[in-house]
Nucleic acid binder design. Sequence first.
DNA 1: TTAGGTAGTCTCG
DNA 2: CGAGACTACCTAA
Length: 159
Amino acid sequence: MSAHSNYQAIIASPLGPLGIVSRNEALCRIDFLPEDTALSPPADAAARRAAAQLRRYFGEPGWSFSLPLRPAGTPFQQSVWRQLQQIPAGQTRSYGHIARALDSGPRAVGNACRANPLPIVIPCHRVVAANGPGGYAGRTEGRNMEIKRWLLAHEGIAP
DNA sequence: TTAGGTAGTCTCG
DNA sequence: CGAGACTACCTAA
């Protein structure tokens, strides 16, 4: 949810417009915006870098991001998001796998993934259930899941 | 297939 | 603060 945010950039992508929020030279949030959202060019260097790397990822599925990130979250969420960043493009991990690495539980990991403010860059789409696709951005069906499937297919991961 | 377990966060009061 | 409810789950039977 993010109704009326002011974005440092709104860029086009194969998944529709993406809103980019940066603060103090670091990337803070990425939102999937409605199809009819007007684009706007990067307003600062951080947004420009993020936009460039996102475009590169969409053209080159194996690309891994290198950006200063400052996602807001609890200490536990931060630790989960750090784990997610260790997953290489084209690979997946299960919620349980991440949970064991943090000595936590699978549902807690799912909760933290749901709270990820930096989709695509922090690759929560690479986290799937032991038997099933899991969810995306809080939903287990609909457009969010289409986005998750698109990202996995983009990286060559079969459904 | 389901029943129960689990960890973190949110919501009331 | 405390109790309970709510999850993008997992395992055993």
